[in-house]
């Protein structure tokens, strides 16, 4: 599992931050799809984690616990309210993409996907981050989100269906085996 390793038991909070902050920030950025929200969330989570560090550091997978805190923070209802603006702001979407046209089909796919992921509901966005960026199993995602595996599968299938249906047909066909 991608999220559980990376830190050994008994490290200090400062050592943990030194070693893993970059990974955590990238993870939060993929979960939230909003670098500024990710920054906000990571700072809040680290402040809380620091106060609980004596307990967290004794866990089998401290990093996984902190990543769970990030997802929970993102999905809390206050954060959802902030996060909902992500797919609706043109300036935000523009910020994702290069202004120059891209003639490489594979890159078009990726750019279109950048836009489309931003339109997913936050929970679906979090699930695909955990599934494809973190390479977690459905069972592990269910444990992190505190829900049933069938719920995770539902989110995952809905997200995939939404992305697949919304991806421009010309780009979808480029993925077909020849």
């Amino acid at each position: 599992m991608g999220g559980g390793g990376g830190v050994s038991e008994g490290v200090t909070f400062e050592e943990f931050v030194s070693a893993r902050l970059g990974v955590l920030v990238r993870y939060a950025t993929v979960v939230t799809w909003d670098p500024h929200l990710a920054e906000d969330i990571i700072q809040n989570v680290l402040v809380r984690a620091q106060s609980r560090w004596p307990r967290i550091s004794r866990m089998e997978a401290p990093e996984l616990y902190v990543k769970r805190m990030v997802v929970n923070e993102f999905l809390s209802w206050r954060r959802r309210r902030a996060a909902r603006t992500v797919p609706l702001t043109g300036e935000v979407l523009d910020g994702f993409l290069p202004s120059a046209p891209d003639h490489i089909v594979q890159r078009d796919d990726r750019d279109a996907m950048l836009r489309l992921i931003a339109t997913l509901p936050p929970r679906q966005r979090a699930v695909i981050a955990l599934r494809f960026y973190e390479d977690l199993t459905v069972d592990q995602i269910a444990e992190i989100l505190g829900c049933r595996t069938v719920t995770v599968r539902t989110h995952l299938s809905r997200a995939l269906a939404s992305l697949q249906n919304a991806l421009p047909a010309t780009l979808v066909t480029t993925g077909e085996p020849s």
């Binding site: 990238r26 950025t29 993929v30 796919d109 990726r110 996907m113 950048l114 695909i128 981050a129 960026y133």
Partner: peptide, 10 residues
């Protein structure tokens, strides 16, 4: 494609 987009977002 999702993984590539996520890597880029990261």
């Amino acid at each position: 494609v999702i993984r590539a987009a996520q890597s880029r977002r990261a």
